[in-house]
Design a protein around this nucleic acid. Structure first.
Length: 470
RNA sequence: GGCGCGGUGGCAGAAUGGCUAUGCAGAGGACUGCAAAUCCUUGUAUGCCGGUUCGAUUCCGGCCCGUGCCUCCA
């Protein structure tokens, strides 16, 4: 089966062909670490993670390298540091750690390399020097600017021509720019601002140069896939291409450009001004990470995603039912991968089709239910073991159903005010009332627990309870 | 103004020139002291107007609506 990816560069779905199947390389634009990650950041991370997992599945874990940077120098960080009075490195390390923890809670594998900007100042300066030498950049009043007119095919990715850009520019053009479209590679720092010595004076890097320098350092001049949010197409990625390709004698920076769509909070966009920014950190207090992850993957990655409470509830329902089926299938030992042909039934076809996670998720749910139903029906048991293996393979690529079902149902929110001992004594009280045929009392206790968000289940081995998201 | 994306049942979301997935929720039934879970059954949709066609949700044109980007925002 061939992997197809939508390539922003060509605006079409293409068959993915790596430069070197032994060394498949992808780069993702990572977070600027000065605050908690919001759910939109998480969508980008989760989408990249599914792609990373799929590539590892196809080419082998050892043959895929995923680099996602940490932007730890930036004006917003400097402002946050000024306000809090903390050092920049204190802030950036703190939020880098939180980001990684939050993404891990969403089931994202850590990238192979997480380069920090502040540790790549020299490669950035080297690239800037190269661009000046080749006539693609110039120095002006302590700034170094990329000269957009020096690159004939600038605008290839975003399909913008320069005249429109200049005409539509919303900001005042700095007087030292030779061309309105030129952008900063290096800018001067005030003495109290963070900065590094350079041939052009003490300063700090512009926004785009970091990704060009770090991708070169860790993936080489040309690599396979570059991903990020839709909003990064212009100017960020366009300018990365300009820098890298001019510095590399016109060599292509990345063959495939993969961009995820935005997430809305219901009908409105998520924005600070609307005050509806949802942080992953807060969400994780109320919902299991897999529920959030499934919600983020419930729409195709290029489509807008409407993030709502209802979506989370639905995602929870899907996972609950799936885990219940897995409980039923507990004793079905999945067949080893070598024992069957994976392409069977076209199991992974949706994911190979430009990461159609929504279809994959529903297939997964349907197959789990069917298999649980068929468990005791006549049929080849080996085939059932194989089916379970196929289901688990896809589940791993999606990053769902990664828990033990018993643990899954034992989950409760971190901030829930639920004392296991109290619940247990109530459950026992109800059992006693039931035994005494005092059903009014047993129902009263059940309702009391229900009000606490706890659902009971009377099974053959007694009563179990679990927390239900309300 | 420029470039782009999308409008499918209560919700989510595929696919397709004809027989219209799937999941969640809902309804009815079985089971249960009552529930929960499970099982069985079940309803409802392709924004509007034209065109091409034997036949369009699918192709073409127009319209309406929503939405993204156009210099530091995933």
């Amino acid at each position: 089966m061939e992997l197809k990816l939508y390539n922003t560069l060509t605006r079409s779905k293409e068959i993915f062909k790596p430069i070197d199947p032994q060394n498949v390389r992808m780069y993702g634009c990572g977070p600027t670490v000065y605050n908690y990650a919001h759910i939109g950041n998480a969508r980008a991370a989760v989408v990249m993670d599914v792609l990373y997992r799929l590539l590892r599945h196809i080419y082998g874990t050892e043959h895929v390298k995923f680099v996602r940077n940490i932007t730890d120098v930036d004006d917003k960080i400097m402002e946050a540091a000024r306000q809090s009075g903390e050092g920049i490195d204190v802030i950036t390390r703190k939020y880098e750690k939180i980001y990684n923890e939050d993404m891990a809670a969403l089931g994202c594998l850590p990238p192979d390399v997480q380069p920090r900007c502040t540790e790549h100042i020299q490669p950035m300066q080297d690239m800037i020097a190269k661009l000046i030498k080749s006539g693609n950049a110039y120095e002006a009043q302590g700034n170094v600017l990329f000269s957009v007119p020096s690159m004939s095919n600038y605008g290839r990715l975003s399909r913008k021509n320069r005249d429109e850009l200049v005409a539509g520019a919303r900001v005042d053009v700095a007087p030292y720019k030779r061309d309105a479209a030129d952008f900063v590679l290096w800018k001067p720092s005030e003495p109290e601002q963070v900065g590094w010595d350079s041939p052009w004076g003490r300063g700090r890097p512009g926004w785009h140069i970091e990704c060009s320098a770090m991708s070169e350092a860790h993936l080489g001049e040309t690599f396979d896939i570059h991903c990020g949010g839709l909003d990064l197409i212009f100017p960020h990625h366009e300018n990365e291409i300009a820098q890298s390709e001019c510095a590399h004698g016109g060599k292509v920076m990345a063959n495939y450009w993969v961009h995820n769509g935005f997430l809305n909070m219901g009908d409105e966009k998520m924005s600070k001004s609307l005050g509806n920014v949802v942080l992953v950190h807060d969400l994780l207090k109320k919902w299991p990470g897999e529920v959030i992850r499934l919600a983020l993957l419930s729409a195709h990655y290029r489509q807008p995603l409407s993030f709502t409470e209802d979506l989370l509830l639905q995602s929870k329902a899907v996972l609950d039912a799936g885990y219940r089926a897995l409980q039923t299938l507990r004793d079905v030992e999945p067949l080893e991968a070598e024992e069957y042909h994976e392409d069977l039934y076209g199991h992974l076809a949706p994911l190979f089709n430009d990461l159609d996670t929504s279809k994959a998720i529903m297939d997964e749910r349907g197959r789990l239910g069917q298999l649980a139903k068929d468990l005791n029906a006549v049929g080849d048991f080996k085939q059932k073991r194989q089916m379970k293996a196929l289901i688990l393979t896809q589940a791993k690529l999606l990053g769902i159903y990664q828990h033990n079902p018993d643990d899954w149902f034992a989950w409760k929110p971190a901030d829930a005010d639920i004392d296991d001992a109290v619940v247990q004594s109530l459950v026992e009280g109800r059992a006693a009332a039931k035994k005494a045929k005092n059903f009014a009392e047993s129902d009263r206790i059940r309702d009391e627990l229900k009000a606490m968000g706890i659902a009971l289940e009377d099974g053959p081995q007694g009563t179990t309870w679990r927390y239900v998201c309300k």
